[in-house]
Design a protein around this nucleic acid. Structure first.
Lengths: 139, 139
DNA sequence: ATCGTTCTTAGACTAAGTCCAATCTTCGGT
DNA sequence: ACCGAAGATTGGACTTAGTCTAAGAACGAT
């Protein structure tokens, strides 16, 4: 398991002191593509680590966001959700399941942003809603 | 004040039975360009109408959304906010003040949405973040 | 080993929103 | 104008997400 050491190194590179709790949280939240809410993180992490408090989960998630390891998304329905993919990309929200799907930046082209009068845009994304079509199961 | 009757007609056209509370709420929330939260609506409306309960404000806002008079937006930080402009448009969030600014649909061009594999997109918008530039005061 | 800093913890607290049973309004029919 | 049914409103209890705090535990440099 160099996995664990990799994560430790990654935290330290971002100026975050490692701890059992932070490692456990990182191990889950930095690897998932599920866009979990804080609550989900707490559940998942609590299952592996003997004891971890809610306050720590919130503290840690906020710290990770501040240090650029995680991005906080608020896309629908009072759901604050965390995304380990920090590069710019778009999001699709499945209206049936609530699932959030990443849409690669290159998949869409947005024109006109620099020309908006009176607005200095520092970042943007397209938020799409709809249904995910049944997946052909071919991997 | 034909204002009041106009609103009444508008509610009825959308299959909504009028009532003092609903009229008061509609009068504010359908005319504002402020993107108020439920809480704000409660405050504003409570100031004019002798008594209106929180439950009613929430019920009414949800009803208006369901009937297509209002759109619910969740753009940042656990803030659920209501927008009387139901036609498609984009949104800019001022990072300093939290203010939400409408961006006309025609101001941006988004290409590539129909080609997204596996996704049936029913609606989308661009969400932008940044600072509003100081407004030249020329009206 | 010690000391100061940093992390974690439980639990109280807050804010946003929901739920519910009882009460009050409204509307259509007469 | 009146009546009853259907629908709307109410306060208050409840839930859920998140914050705060004071006290204790672990860390790392000496």
């Amino acid at each position: 398991m160099t996995q664990r050491t990799d994560i430790r190194r990654r935290l330290e590179e971002h100026g975050i002191q490692a701890s059992a709790q932070r490692l456990a949280i990182a191990e889950y939240v930095l690897a998932t593509d599920q866009h979990p809410a804080a609550d989900t993180v707490l559940e998942v992490v609590a299952a592996r680590l003997p004891v971890v408090s809610r306050a720590t989960v919130y503290n840690t998630l906020h710290l990770f966001v501040e240090k650029g390891l995680l991005r906080e998304l608020v896309l629908s329905e009072g759901r604050v959700v965390y995304d380990p993919k920090v590069e710019p990309h778009h999001h699709f929200v499945d209206e049936t399941s609530g699932a959030i799907v990443d849409v690669p930046w290159e998949a869409l082209r947005v024109e006109g942003v620099p020309e908006l009068p009176g607005l200095d845009v520092s970042e943007f994304q397209v938020v799409l809603r709809g249904r995910r079509r049944a997946r052909r199961r071919d991997g």
